[in-house]
Design a protein around this nucleic acid. Sequence first.
DNA 1: ACCTGAACACCGTTCAAGT
DNA 2: ACCTGAACACCGTTCAAGT
Lengths: 235, 235
Amino acid sequence: MADRLPAEGSHRRRRPTKQGTVLSAGLIVETALRLIREHGASALTVRRLGAALGADPSALYRYFRNTDELLLAVADELIGQVWVGWAASGDWRADLRDLGLRMHAAFLAHPQAAVLTAHRTTGGPHETHAIETIIGVLRGAGFPDPAAVAIYHGFVDLGLSQAALDAAHLALPAEAREAERRVWQRTYTSMPAGTHPHLAATGTLLRNEMGRSAYPQLLELFLDAAAIRLPRKAG
Amino acid sequence: MADRLPAEGSHRRRRPTKQGTVLSAGLIVETALRLIREHGASALTVRRLGAALGADPSALYRYFRNTDELLLAVADELIGQVWVGWAASGDWRADLRDLGLRMHAAFLAHPQAAVLTAHRTTGGPHETHAIETIIGVLRGAGFPDPAAVAIYHGFVDLGLSQAALDAAHLALPAEAREAERRVWQRTYTSMPAGTHPHLAATGTLLRNEMGRSAYPQLLELFLDAAAIRLPRKAG
DNA sequence: ACCTGAACACCGTTCAAGT
DNA sequence: ACCTGAACACCGTTCAAGT
């Protein structure tokens, strides 16, 4: 698919842009992440990215076929950040918990990019490493292959979908996020018991509950369920 | 906030547009949903919506402050579709399973709209009804209020986040979706055992597993965990 | 070989002018 | 009172022209 685009490690000589930048796929991805982080998802436009790099916007099309291909590279880079400084402990449950929370944290550190990428399959090197390692943790723990694969699916989709949900909230413009907060703080804490008895009875509890992520609770529950599928060790 | 915009049921007389349409918030929301459904999320632009309604794009700003406010109305409408034809059975577990699957189905029926709205708190009438009903099912089953509220949170966030994840995949342009399918069908089924032993061993299992949603599995597991928190009935 | 710049076909939103 | 139309400040992408 990408065969006429320069390979990642290509040592081809590149002419600097007018402003002196020597472009590369890696530099473009880094700059894209920084742009999103500093100015929000709406800042990721080819035109602004070109300006931030000191190059004409159209020069980027020599490195990525279109914005979707650039986005997949950003996605793989985000997946890569999950693994920085991680090492397996040998305890599958601790390892999965740690990886789940790291995945969530890495995506929430770049909420705007996470929203755009959490649901993508990149096929890239970091994604490949992630699958290999997680399946390895499960097989190493003694899960039979079909169970390992089913648990892998649930684990990754739970983590990614929750990361995307929480990231989407963080990525809202301040005004919209504040408006949603007010709904939980005010609207749903003052429903008349006549028409909405259950909301009236639990509004305050809801206000506290909905202010945090459901992920830690759901992850723990998932790990409990996975543990049940682990065969007892022989001998 | 929306105090200078016409109320939903306002009987104010409205002049038809040049092309004869009498605008209303409801008609605009319906048309927006249809537009997204027929031509994808990128079709939801003020300009195209205006054209579809037979009105000047700028006329819409008399009904919605901006596109975000329109989106929240679309979100509440989607939530409303979950409840069409639903009635409580009295069995909390069957009711939650049914509602979870309906939520997922309603959002997947409008994948492009779901991606844009699944993470929003609308504060609208359908959302209010949803919270009241779900909390009611849990309290009616005998869950103490703190448990009911925690379970509500996990249930709704699991359903919405999984709906958003699956919808985001369905909402991809055909070309991108096909490319991702190929990654699971080809790339990850042919990894060399030398560098990626675990992927090499489970590639075929993964190919089958990743083609379907993790949600039914996760929902069942969640309901199991919830059941454990239900106090035994006295007497 | 690679970057540039103009061009094309779009956006959301505002506001004075029309009816 | 409500809709219109022009205007403003943007988009992604292509492609012939420059170096």
